[in-house]
């Protein structure tokens, strides 16, 4: 008998909870607003770097362009395509995939939904790949250029002559950061030693702060006094290590100064938010064009951070030196390698 009573109570509680939500207004579909759907990578939202930057751009589009936005965080890899398709089928004008790993899926879905526009952040193009279809825009960044500039800052700021690099997943995209960084260090300090470490070889390596901290402690322990991380959420561990040891770290993708105000020398900012916002703006104003769009130092898509908060960490003359190198790159006088030499 007790069982039946308990079930009856359970049913009543559930009905009450269901009823409690009934008065809430549900999301309306407005026809005159531009509708944008965005798919993060697995576990991406909250990385305080790449995925969050995309989200910031999207929210800005919601506020200033009155875009109606919806976002999805997939549960596993096979959900990526499904999430893109779900957003395309739901009548969004623009569907955005955040991360190189969406490349193949978004190409396929763009072919199936020719009336929907698509954009992919860090769209990868291999040798012999056909150009993207007209309704797909691949957003690409010349990360090596921004990494070069923060590498130069690291080389100038290091007192020990030893600096470090910590990558997330070992893939060509992240090796671009490594290549640019090492080249930047060498440009200002040919004798500096650069230690290189990666958190892993699978996507999880971008969300592993424990490993990030261990790798950073090891590099600081060997004498490095500046570490540049290009590792998404894994970088949180690098900043913890920097705070513990009182050594310097360099942020990535977004300005990560607040992660460790004592110790962040600069950040290699990749303006993913600007790219996302501009793409929504293009759709809203009917100016969207498929293809590839590249953002480097010249276009203002990648940059380093120097302001009142971090200026004290920069040695005299360092700012001028980095600024001169930045001008060289923007003018096309200096090319930065994209693969580790």
């Amino acid at each position: 008998m007790f069982g039946r009573q308990a079930i009856a109570v359970g049913v009543v509680v559930n009905l009450l909870l269901l009823a409690a939500g009934l008065g809430r207004p549900s999301a309306e579909v407005a026809s005159d607003r531009v509708r944008v759907g965005l798919v993060f990578d697995v576990g991406g939202l909250g990385d305080k770097s790449f995925n969050d930057a995309a989200h910031i751009g999207l929210v800005r589009a919601e506020e200033t362009l009155d875009a109606q936005i919806s976002t999805v965080e997939p549960g596993d890899g096979s959900d990526r395509e499904s999430a893109l398709r779900q957003l395309a089928a739901a009548g969004n004008d623009l569907v955005i995939g955040v991360g190189f790993i969406f490349t193949d899926d978004i190409r396929r879905i763009a072919g199936e939904f020719p009336d929907v526009k698509f954009a992919c952040v860090d769209f990868s193009v291999g040798p012999g790949d056909p150009p993207p279809p007209p309704n797909l825009l691949g957003l690409r960044f010349r990360e090596e250029e921004g990494s070069f500039l923060v590498g130069a800052a690291a080389g100038l700021a290091s007192k020990t002559g030893k600096v470090g690099f910590i990558g997330g997943m070992m893939i060509p995209l992240i090796q671009k950061f490594e290549a640019g960084y090492v080249d930047g260090v060498r440009a200002v300090c040919p004798t500096c030693e650069v230690s290189i470490a990666y958190a892993g070889t699978e996507p999880k390596a971008f969300a592993d702060p424990t490993t990030g901290k261990e790798l950073a402690l090891a590099q600081y322990g060997r004498g490095a006094d500046v570490i540049f991380h290009a590792s998404g959420k894994t970088g949180a561990g690098v900043f913890v290590a920097a705070r513990e040891k009182g050594k310097m770290a360099i942020g990535v993708d977004a300005d990560q100064f607040h992660e460790a105000p004592c110790c962040v020398l600069t950040s290699m900012v990749k303006d993913v938010d600007v790219a996302v916002y501009d793409t929504v703006l293009a759709v809203a104003t009917d100016k969207f064009k498929g293809g590839l769009s590249e953002f480097g130092v010249k276009e203002g898509g990648v940059r380093y951070v120097f302001d009142d908060r971090n200026a004290a960490m920069w040695p005299d003359g360092a700012r001028e030196r980095v600024e001169a190198l930045s001008a060289e790159i923007a003018a096309g006088l200096r090319t930065v390698p994209t693969v580790p030499q």
């Binding site: 559930n14 909870l17 939500g21 549900s26």
Partner: peptide, 14 residues
Amino acid sequence: ASLLFLFWGASPVE
């Protein structure tokens, strides 16, 4: 689950 949805501001029925 319903409680969590309500917390977030979504209607469980929806």
